[in-house]
Design a protein around this nucleic acid. Structure first.
Length: 640
RNA sequence: GCCCUUAUAGCUCAGUGGUAGAGCAACCGCCUUGUAAGCGGUAGGUCGUGGGUUCAAAUCCUACUGGGGGCACCA
């Protein structure tokens, strides 16, 4: 496709109408060119540019077209709402990562039925193909427009802008909105590939002290195919929802008496324990020791550590015999007590102390979400006590360990965020310099790239965060390394250095999965419930075709069980197709099917998830391969 | 915590002012099974909880609790 004539036209830099472009361009229909880019900045087609700066068209097919379309759809939403509900005040309506929203202030509460009407009106507005015109008003005109039209939020935006700011308004038909732009040339360009998704409350300017507005959000795509693809993706995400899978696979449940706390069922707890065993093995190989500390400790300890002041709102407490205790929201103070117990020498460092501590945090009710956000969870925590000189090497070791572990679970796409000193912090700049450098050198020595998150570190030290991307492209922040030069001092931890003096150790807080509960949720969604063979709570079901094979099946299951395989047998009086369907739906990775033929030949028929073949092989061979696959943590046993 | 929304059988859902329903699952029986649902029967619910309106409430109003979508929060 040649863009030559069109680009030449746009390069002239003068305002032009769409029809002009379209009439002179053989390769673009008017709807294809949405805006143009001058010096990397996207502007309206109709905005004049000075001089002879080159400009390029932004076409519908371009990646940057999507935010433009979505922003315009938000305006059409606002227009539709204004037309249908005249007393509505407008707040803001941007494009977002996945769509758009517009916030409104209205007496009327928008219902689902309203959304249907609003969406229908939006389609009408697109069909009207109203020209979108940019106007620049002076401040007085703008503010009086706000007064006359009942737009207090727009007025507030104007007042927050510098006095000399250019105030641009966009007019489409009878609708006018204060907006920075850029916008398309007409509402018809938007097309019909959009959908309203729902309403929600949202604080004005995101501040909970401000009034709550009504947000209507939706998504828009470049064409119907993309919208259909987006919808399929939504359905896929719903299909993978770990709350649904948890029920279907009988892993866990929640109930009203314990909001935000998990009731693990046998299958779920087996998975949990499998993960724990895995982590223990990896940590042991890295020369960690494991400890366990009390769940409930006197409040004074939490006051000394600083948690009560800094985190008290999120802590549960309990009183008995007139004494106040706190239920631990973090493991670090307990870990420091173990370090403190008995004099430590520099020869003991680095001391890597892991703890699978169950912590409780009061999370606001609105924040709870399945396993992903709970009030009670198990951290795969470790505190590494080391000298300042050891920080870099320890950081490097942790980075390697984390990435290696993620790989074992099928997460290859991992990003690292480096959060440095926040404004509110403890410790001297010198200490921060050293901490940040050590972290940075550690991550760089691992050969890993990272992005910087300025000012996002913890108050006691900088941190690395490991973000993994799942099978359907969602990001999850899991592991973390945090440098802490504060807590050891507060809790009076020290070691004897080579100089014979006491020194405060550096403490590295480190989590691999973060929360076992949450990681299980992520794993379930990543694999859509089809866990790798080595992880599945029930790895194998031995199913019989006829009662004649019961004894054979029983012996087979017994052998596997004794050799460490998680196996169940299904000897029910049911058709084999029925059993297969049931265990397939339960996401058992491997079915061993036996009937008279298998018994006579000493074989099993193998039905593995994802494999259309159902090979038959000798029982001994099958057992050996199974055990090997489980031991080697393979995703599949009998791969095609 | 805030806004909206939602709660009917183990699960998925129907029922919008007048005698609580279906499918699947469970249980019992028949069938004796060859790679994703064989057939028949039985049982199962104070319609989340508490108030209120009404001759009458699963249905309307209200408060609370839990869930969902967002906002805020995420040391």
């Amino acid at each position: 496709m040649s863009r030559g004539p069109l680009i030449a036209l746009i390069r002239q830099g003068s305002p032009m109408s769409l029809t002009t472009i379209a009439s002179r361009s053989a390769s673009h229909s008017p709807k294809d060119v949405l805006a143009r880019r001058v010096n990397g900045i996207i502007i309206d087609l109709t905005t004049p540019t000075s001089g002879d700066r080159p400009s390029d068209p932004v076409c519908r097919a371009d990646a940057d077209a999507l935010p433009l379309l979505r922003h315009d759809t938000a305006h059409v939403l606002a227009q539709a709402v204004s037309e249908l509900f005249s007393d509505t005040a407008l707040a803001t309506g941007p494009a977002t990562e996945h769509g758009f929203f517009y916030d409104f202030a209205a007496e009327h509460t928008f219902t689902d039925d309203d959304l249907v009407r609003i969406e229908a009106r939006m389609h009408e507005i697109v069909d009207r193909d109203e020209t979108i015109v940019r106007e620049e008003w002076d401040r007085e005109t703008a503010l009086s427009w706000c007064r006359e039209n009942g737009q207090p939020y727009k007025a507030e935006i104007i007042r927050s802008l510098p006095a000399d700011a250019v105030l641009s308004f966009y007019r489409q038909g009878g609708f006018v909105d204060l907006c920075r732009g850029p916008h398309l040339a007409s509402t018809g360009q938007i097309g019909h590939a959009f959908r309203l998704l729902g309403t929600a409350g949202a604080y004005w300017k995101g501040d909970r002290n401000n009034p709550m507005l009504q947000r209507i959000h939706g998504t828009a795509c470049r064409d119907a195919d993309e919208l259909a693809a987006w919808e399929r993706c939504q359905e896929e995400a719903a299909r993978r929802d770990h709350r649904r899978l948890g029920r279907e696979m009988d892993l866990f449940h929640f109930q009203p008496e314990a909001p935000g706390a998990v009731f693990w069922h046998p299958n779920g707890w087996t998975l949990f324990q499998t993960l724990l065993a895995y982590l223990r093995e990896r940590q042991q190989a890295e020369n960690y020791v494991e400890i366990n500390t009390p769940d409930i400790m006197d409040l004074s300890l939490w006051q000394t550590s600083g948690h009560w002041e800094k985190f008290g709102e999120n802590m549960f407490t309990t009183e008995t015999e007139g004494r106040t205790y706190a239920i631990k929201p973090m493991n670090c103070p307990g870990g420091v007590q173990v370090f403190r117990h008995g004099l430590k020498s520099y020869r003991d460092l680095p001391l890597r102390m892991a703890e699978f501590g169950k912590v409780h945090r009061f999370e606001p009710s609105g924040a709870l979400h399945g396993l992903m956000r709970v009030r009670a969870f198990t951290q795969d925590d470790a505190h590494i006590f080391c000298t300042p000189e050891q920080m870099e090497a320890e950081t490097q070791r942790i980075c390697h360990l984390v990435l290696s572990i993620y790989k074992d679970f099928g997460f290859d796409d991992v990003r690292i965020k480096f959060s440095d000193r926040p404004e509110k912090r403890v410790g001297s700049d010198d200490i921060w310099d050293r901490s940040e450098k050590a972290l940075q050198r550690g991550v760089e020595a691992s050969g890993l790239s990272y992005t910087r998150n300025p000012g996002e570190g913890a108050f006691y030290g900088p941190k690395l965060e490991f973000v993994l991307r799942d099978a359907i492209g969602r990001d999850w922040q899991c592991g973390t390394v945090q440098v802490d030069l504060n807590l050891p001092q507060r809790l009076d931890a020290h070691y004897i250095g080579t100089d014979g003096d006491k020194h405060a150790p550096v403490m590295l807080h480190r989590a691999l999965f973060g929360s076992l509960e949450r990681f299980i949720g992520i794993l379930l969604e990543h694999h859509a419930g089809h866990l790798p063979f080595w992880l599945a709570p029930v790895q194998v079901v031995v199913a019989t075709i006829t009662v004649a094979a019961d004894a054979y099946a029983h012996d087979l299951a017994d052998t596997l069980r004794q050799r460490g395989i998680r196996v169940a047998s299904d000897l029910r009086n049911e058709k084999i197709a029925y059993k297969i369907r049931e265990h397939s739906l339960a996401k058992v990775p491997l079915l061993l099917i036996v009937g008279k033929k298998e018994e006579q030949a000493g074989t099993v028929s193998i039905r593995e998830y994802g494999n259309p073949e159902t090979p038959t092989m000798s029982t001994d061979t099958a057992i050996n391969r199974l055990i090997n696959a489980s031991y080697c943590r393979l995703t599949r046993v009998f791969d095609v």
